[in-house]
Protein backbone atom coordinates (compact mmCIF):
# COMPACT_ATOMS: atom_id res chain seq x y z
CA UNK A 1 0.00 0.00 0.00
CA UNK A 2 1.19 3.51 -0.77
CA UNK A 3 2.49 5.17 2.42
CA UNK A 4 0.65 8.41 1.71
CA UNK A 5 -2.62 6.59 1.22
CA UNK A 6 -2.17 4.64 4.46
CA UNK A 7 -1.47 7.83 6.41
CA UNK A 8 -4.49 9.48 4.78
CA UNK A 9 -6.75 6.55 5.68
CA UNK A 10 -5.55 6.51 9.27
CA UNK A 11 -5.99 10.28 9.62
CA UNK A 12 -9.52 9.86 8.26
CA UNK A 13 -10.21 7.01 10.70
CA UNK A 14 -8.96 9.03 13.67
CA UNK A 15 -11.07 12.00 12.51
CA UNK A 16 -14.22 9.90 12.20
CA UNK A 17 -13.67 8.25 15.59
CA UNK A 18 -13.02 11.68 17.13
CA UNK A 19 -16.40 12.90 15.87
CA UNK A 20 -18.16 9.71 17.00
CA UNK A 21 -16.56 10.07 20.43
CA UNK A 22 -17.90 13.63 20.67
CA UNK A 23 -21.36 12.31 19.82
CA UNK A 24 -21.46 9.51 22.41
CA UNK A 25 -22.44 10.08 26.02
CA UNK A 26 -25.10 9.58 28.64
CA UNK A 27 -26.65 13.01 28.03
CA UNK A 28 -28.05 11.71 24.72
CA UNK A 29 -27.61 14.93 22.72
CA UNK A 30 -28.75 14.87 19.11
CA UNK A 31 -26.00 15.67 16.56
CA UNK A 32 -27.21 19.22 15.86
CA UNK A 33 -27.40 20.19 19.55
CA UNK A 34 -24.03 18.53 20.10
CA UNK A 35 -22.41 20.46 17.25
CA UNK A 36 -23.93 23.78 18.30
CA UNK A 37 -22.81 23.10 21.86
CA UNK A 38 -19.31 22.30 20.69
CA UNK A 39 -18.90 25.57 18.82
CA UNK A 40 -20.49 27.43 21.70
CA UNK A 41 -23.73 28.74 20.24
CA UNK A 42 -26.10 26.13 21.66
CA UNK A 43 -27.78 26.11 25.03
CA UNK A 44 -25.58 26.48 28.08
CA UNK A 45 -25.90 22.87 29.29
CA UNK A 46 -25.04 21.38 25.89
CA UNK A 47 -22.09 23.75 25.66
CA UNK A 48 -20.74 22.58 29.03
CA UNK A 49 -21.23 18.92 28.17
CA UNK A 50 -19.50 19.25 24.80
CA UNK A 51 -16.69 21.64 25.67
CA UNK A 52 -15.89 20.62 29.24
CA UNK A 53 -16.67 16.90 29.30
CA UNK A 54 -16.64 15.29 25.85
CA UNK A 55 -14.00 17.40 24.09
CA UNK A 56 -11.25 16.84 26.69
CA UNK A 57 -12.11 13.15 26.75
CA UNK A 58 -11.82 12.80 22.96
CA UNK A 59 -8.63 14.89 22.88
CA UNK A 60 -7.03 12.81 25.61
CA UNK A 61 -7.92 9.57 23.82
CA UNK A 62 -5.97 10.81 20.80
CA UNK A 63 -3.01 12.09 22.83
CA UNK A 64 -2.78 8.97 24.98
CA UNK A 65 -3.34 6.58 22.06
CA UNK A 66 -0.75 8.28 19.87
CA UNK A 67 1.73 8.15 22.74
CA UNK A 68 1.21 4.44 23.27
CA UNK A 69 1.37 3.51 19.58
CA UNK A 70 4.41 5.67 18.88
CA UNK A 71 6.38 4.68 21.97
CA UNK A 72 5.61 1.02 21.27
CA UNK A 73 6.96 1.36 17.73
CA UNK A 74 10.10 3.18 18.92
CA UNK A 75 10.80 0.71 21.72
CA UNK A 76 10.30 -2.26 19.40
CA UNK A 77 12.58 -0.68 16.80
CA UNK A 78 15.26 0.56 19.14
CA UNK A 79 15.43 -2.56 21.31
CA UNK A 80 14.88 -4.73 18.21
CA UNK A 81 12.43 -6.67 20.31
CA UNK A 82 8.91 -7.42 19.07
CA UNK A 83 7.58 -7.74 22.63
CA UNK A 84 8.64 -4.27 23.76
CA UNK A 85 5.91 -1.82 24.71
CA UNK A 86 5.57 0.65 27.58
CA UNK A 87 3.11 -1.63 29.38
CA UNK A 88 5.07 -4.86 29.14
CA UNK A 89 8.30 -3.12 30.10
CA UNK A 90 6.78 -1.67 33.27
CA UNK A 91 7.09 1.96 32.18
CA UNK A 92 3.35 2.54 32.55
CA UNK A 93 3.23 0.89 35.98
CA UNK A 94 6.17 3.01 37.18
CA UNK A 95 4.62 6.20 35.80
CA UNK A 96 1.42 5.24 37.67
CA UNK A 97 3.41 4.91 40.87
CA UNK A 98 4.83 8.40 40.40
CA UNK A 99 1.37 9.82 39.70
CA UNK A 100 -0.15 7.99 42.67
CA UNK A 101 2.47 9.40 45.01
CA UNK A 102 1.83 12.91 43.67
CA UNK A 103 -1.96 12.70 43.94
CA UNK A 104 -2.48 10.87 47.22
CA UNK A 105 0.09 12.81 49.22
CA UNK A 106 -1.78 15.95 48.22
CA UNK A 107 1.21 17.35 46.31
CA UNK A 108 -0.71 17.50 43.02
CA UNK A 109 -3.48 19.55 44.66
CA UNK A 110 -0.97 22.19 45.78
CA UNK A 111 1.08 22.17 42.60
CA UNK A 112 -0.74 20.62 39.61
CA UNK A 113 2.42 20.21 37.49
CA UNK A 114 3.70 17.79 40.13
CA UNK A 115 1.34 15.19 38.66
CA UNK A 116 2.89 14.83 35.18
CA UNK A 117 6.39 15.49 36.53
CA UNK A 118 6.15 12.76 39.16
CA UNK A 119 4.78 10.31 36.59
CA UNK A 120 7.60 11.18 34.18
CA UNK A 121 10.05 10.68 37.05
CA UNK A 122 8.59 7.23 37.72
CA UNK A 123 8.82 6.32 34.04
CA UNK A 124 12.42 7.58 33.89
CA UNK A 125 13.44 5.38 36.81
CA UNK A 126 11.81 2.37 35.13
CA UNK A 127 13.49 2.93 31.76
CA UNK A 128 16.88 3.52 33.35
CA UNK A 129 16.55 0.38 35.46
CA UNK A 130 15.46 -1.55 32.40
CA UNK A 131 18.42 -0.45 30.30
CA UNK A 132 20.79 -1.13 33.20
CA UNK A 133 19.31 -4.55 33.87
CA UNK A 134 18.91 -5.79 30.35
CA UNK A 135 21.10 -3.60 28.17
CA UNK A 136 20.66 -2.86 24.51
CA UNK A 137 21.64 -6.31 23.29
CA UNK A 138 19.48 -8.22 25.72
CA UNK A 139 17.50 -11.18 24.46
CA UNK A 140 13.74 -10.62 24.26
CA UNK A 141 13.34 -12.95 27.22
CA UNK A 142 15.73 -10.99 29.46
CA UNK A 143 14.05 -7.74 28.57
CA UNK A 144 10.57 -9.06 29.26
CA UNK A 145 11.69 -10.57 32.57
CA UNK A 146 13.23 -7.28 33.63
CA UNK A 147 10.00 -5.53 32.58
CA UNK A 148 7.83 -7.93 34.56
CA UNK A 149 9.98 -7.44 37.65
CA UNK A 150 9.83 -3.65 37.39
CA UNK A 151 6.11 -3.72 36.64
CA UNK A 152 5.31 -5.99 39.60
CA UNK A 153 7.40 -3.91 41.96
CA UNK A 154 5.82 -0.64 40.83
CA UNK A 155 2.31 -2.11 41.05
CA UNK A 156 3.03 -3.41 44.56
CA UNK A 157 4.20 0.01 45.72
CA UNK A 158 1.18 1.62 44.06
CA UNK A 159 -1.14 -0.73 45.94
CA UNK A 160 0.75 -0.05 49.16
CA UNK A 161 0.47 3.71 48.73
CA UNK A 162 -3.25 3.47 47.96
CA UNK A 163 -3.90 1.14 50.88
CA UNK A 164 -2.08 3.43 53.28
CA UNK A 165 -4.14 6.43 52.19
CA UNK A 166 -6.70 7.45 54.83
CA UNK A 167 -9.20 8.11 52.04
CA UNK A 168 -11.70 5.23 51.86
CA UNK A 169 -11.89 5.49 48.05
CA UNK A 170 -8.15 5.35 47.45
CA UNK A 171 -7.79 1.59 47.77
CA UNK A 172 -10.46 1.07 45.10
CA UNK A 173 -8.62 3.33 42.68
CA UNK A 174 -5.96 0.74 42.06
CA UNK A 175 -8.37 -0.33 39.30
CA UNK A 176 -8.01 3.02 37.56
CA UNK A 177 -4.22 2.94 37.74
CA UNK A 178 -4.02 -0.63 36.44
CA UNK A 179 -6.68 -0.50 33.74
CA UNK A 180 -6.96 3.15 32.76
CA UNK A 181 -9.98 5.33 32.07
CA UNK A 182 -10.85 8.67 30.50
CA UNK A 183 -14.17 9.12 32.29
CA UNK A 184 -14.90 12.72 33.33
CA UNK A 185 -11.37 13.95 32.67
CA UNK A 186 -11.36 17.70 32.18
CA UNK A 187 -9.50 20.31 30.13
CA UNK A 188 -7.20 20.70 33.12
CA UNK A 189 -5.92 17.18 32.43
CA UNK A 190 -5.42 18.04 28.77
CA UNK A 191 -3.37 21.14 29.64
CA UNK A 192 -1.33 19.24 32.22
CA UNK A 193 -0.41 16.37 29.93
CA UNK A 194 -0.45 17.75 26.38
CA UNK A 195 2.83 19.75 26.51
CA UNK A 196 4.81 16.77 27.79
CA UNK A 197 3.10 14.38 25.38
CA UNK A 198 3.79 16.66 22.40
CA UNK A 199 7.40 17.16 23.49
CA UNK A 200 7.88 13.41 23.94
CA UNK A 201 6.28 12.60 20.60
CA UNK A 202 8.43 15.16 18.78
CA UNK A 203 11.53 13.55 20.30
CA UNK A 204 10.33 10.09 19.34
CA UNK A 205 9.45 11.13 15.76
CA UNK A 206 12.95 12.55 15.37
CA UNK A 207 14.33 9.04 15.80
CA UNK A 208 12.86 7.74 12.52
CA UNK A 209 16.02 7.99 10.41
CA UNK A 210 18.27 6.73 13.21
CA UNK A 211 16.04 3.69 13.68
CA UNK A 212 16.14 3.04 9.92
CA UNK A 213 19.94 3.05 10.09
CA UNK A 214 20.02 0.92 13.24
CA UNK A 215 17.78 -1.67 11.59
CA UNK A 216 20.67 -2.27 9.15
CA UNK A 217 22.95 -3.18 12.05
CA UNK A 218 25.11 -1.16 14.47
CA UNK A 219 28.12 -0.99 12.15
CA UNK A 220 26.17 0.38 9.21
CA UNK A 221 24.49 2.85 11.55
CA UNK A 222 27.85 4.00 12.89
CA UNK A 223 29.15 4.47 9.36
CA UNK A 224 26.12 6.65 8.64
CA UNK A 225 27.00 8.88 11.57
CA UNK A 226 24.35 7.62 14.01
CA UNK A 227 25.53 7.93 17.59
CA UNK A 228 23.92 5.13 19.66
CA UNK A 229 24.23 6.99 22.97
CA UNK A 230 22.38 9.98 21.55
CA UNK A 231 19.66 7.76 20.09
CA UNK A 232 19.25 6.08 23.45
CA UNK A 233 19.00 9.38 25.31
CA UNK A 234 16.36 10.72 22.92
CA UNK A 235 14.41 7.44 23.04
CA UNK A 236 14.46 7.42 26.84
CA UNK A 237 13.49 11.09 27.21
CA UNK A 238 10.80 10.87 24.53
CA UNK A 239 9.23 7.71 25.93
CA UNK A 240 9.26 8.82 29.54
CA UNK A 241 7.93 12.30 28.79
CA UNK A 242 5.05 11.10 26.62
CA UNK A 243 4.16 7.88 28.46
CA UNK A 244 4.63 9.49 31.88
CA UNK A 245 2.32 12.41 31.12
CA UNK A 246 -0.25 10.17 29.40
CA UNK A 247 -0.31 7.72 32.30
CA UNK A 248 -0.66 10.54 34.83
CA UNK A 249 -4.08 11.46 33.42
CA UNK A 250 -5.38 8.14 32.08
CA UNK A 251 -3.82 5.33 34.12
CA UNK A 252 -2.10 2.47 32.33
CA UNK A 253 -3.76 1.23 29.18
CA UNK A 254 -2.16 -2.02 28.12
CA UNK A 255 -1.52 -3.70 24.80
CA UNK A 256 -2.04 -0.70 22.49
CA UNK A 257 1.69 -0.04 22.20
CA UNK A 258 2.31 -3.72 21.63
CA UNK A 259 -0.37 -4.58 19.11
CA UNK A 260 -0.65 -1.47 16.94
CA UNK A 261 2.94 -1.42 15.56
CA UNK A 262 2.68 -5.14 14.80
CA UNK A 263 -0.54 -4.70 12.86
CA UNK A 264 0.86 -1.82 10.81
CA UNK A 265 4.43 -3.03 10.28
CA UNK A 266 3.65 -5.22 7.24
CA UNK A 267 1.84 -2.28 5.62
CA UNK A 268 4.90 0.00 5.71
CA UNK A 269 7.49 -2.57 4.67
CA UNK A 270 9.04 -2.78 8.14
CA UNK A 271 10.66 0.66 7.72
CA UNK A 272 10.84 2.29 11.19
CA UNK A 273 10.70 5.89 9.94
CA UNK A 274 7.39 5.06 8.26
CA UNK A 275 6.15 2.87 11.09
CA UNK A 276 6.38 5.69 13.64
CA UNK A 277 3.71 8.06 12.23
CA UNK A 278 1.30 5.29 11.30
CA UNK A 279 1.70 3.68 14.74
CA UNK A 280 0.92 7.01 16.40
CA UNK A 281 -2.23 7.34 14.27
CA UNK A 282 -3.13 3.68 14.78
CA UNK A 283 -2.72 4.01 18.55
CA UNK A 284 -4.91 7.12 18.58
CA UNK A 285 -7.59 5.27 16.61
CA UNK A 286 -7.37 2.21 18.87
CA UNK A 287 -7.73 4.11 22.15
CA UNK A 288 -10.44 6.36 20.70
CA UNK A 289 -12.36 3.28 19.51
CA UNK A 290 -11.93 1.55 22.89
CA UNK A 291 -13.14 4.68 24.69
CA UNK A 292 -16.23 4.80 22.47
CA UNK A 293 -16.84 1.10 23.05
CA UNK A 294 -16.74 1.38 26.86
CA UNK A 295 -19.49 3.99 26.67
CA UNK A 296 -21.61 2.08 24.17
CA UNK A 297 -21.22 -1.45 25.58
CA UNK A 298 -21.84 -0.61 29.23
CA UNK A 299 -23.21 2.91 29.63
CA UNK A 300 -23.29 4.02 33.24
CA UNK A 301 -20.97 1.22 34.34
CA UNK A 302 -17.70 3.10 33.99
CA UNK A 303 -15.97 0.17 32.33
CA UNK A 304 -12.19 0.66 32.31
CA UNK A 305 -10.36 1.10 29.02
CA UNK A 306 -7.72 -1.50 29.85
CA UNK A 307 -10.43 -4.15 30.05
CA UNK A 308 -11.22 -3.71 26.37
CA UNK A 309 -7.65 -3.30 25.15
CA UNK A 310 -6.68 -6.44 27.08
CA UNK A 311 -9.56 -8.47 25.66
CA UNK A 312 -8.32 -7.62 22.17
CA UNK A 313 -4.62 -7.38 22.97
CA UNK A 314 -3.93 -10.35 25.24
CA UNK A 315 -4.82 -13.05 22.68
CA UNK A 316 -2.63 -11.18 20.20
CA UNK A 317 0.20 -11.17 22.73
CA UNK A 318 -0.16 -14.94 23.16
CA UNK A 319 -0.04 -15.40 19.41
CA UNK A 320 3.11 -13.29 19.32
CA UNK A 321 4.76 -15.46 21.96
CA UNK A 322 3.91 -18.57 19.94
CA UNK A 323 5.44 -16.92 16.88
CA UNK A 324 8.58 -16.13 18.87
CA UNK A 325 8.84 -19.69 20.11
CA UNK A 326 8.45 -21.05 16.60
CA UNK A 327 11.25 -18.80 15.46
CA UNK A 328 13.53 -19.84 18.33
CA UNK A 329 12.99 -23.59 17.75
Amino acid sequence: MKFGLLVGLLVGLVGVLFCVSLGVGPAGLDPVTAFLGLIGIGNRAAELVMQEIRLPRAMLAILVGATLGLSGAVLQGYLRNPLADPGVLGIGASASLGAVLAIYTGLAALFPLALPLAAIGGALIAVSALLLLAGRHATPLMLILAGIAISSLATAFTSLALNLSPNPFAALEIVFWMLGSLTDRSMLHVWLSAPFIVLGCVLLFSLGRSLDALSLGPDVAASMGIRPDRVRLVAVLGTTSAVGAATAVSGTIGFVGLVVPHLLRPLVGSQPSRLLPVSALGGAAAVQAADIAVRVIAPGRDLKLGVLTAIVGAPFFLWLILEQRRRLV
Binding site: F169, D184, S186
Partner: peptide, 18 residues
Amino acid sequence: EAPALAYETFQHPALKAI
Protein backbone atom coordinates in the same frame (compact mmCIF):
# COMPACT_ATOMS: atom_id res chain seq x y z
CA GLU B 1 -10.06 14.97 53.44
CA ALA B 2 -7.20 12.98 52.02
CA PRO B 3 -7.20 13.30 48.22
CA ALA B 4 -8.48 10.61 45.85
CA LEU B 5 -9.54 10.46 42.22
CA ALA B 6 -13.06 9.82 43.50
CA TYR B 7 -13.25 13.48 44.55
CA GLU B 8 -11.97 14.93 41.28
CA THR B 9 -15.54 15.10 40.03
CA PHE B 10 -16.16 17.88 42.59
CA GLN B 11 -13.40 19.95 40.97
CA HIS B 12 -14.62 19.41 37.41
CA PRO B 13 -14.89 22.71 35.49
CA ALA B 14 -18.29 21.68 34.10
CA LEU B 15 -19.68 21.21 37.61
CA LYS B 16 -18.20 24.49 38.77
CA ALA B 17 -19.70 26.24 35.76
CA ILE B 18 -23.22 24.93 36.32
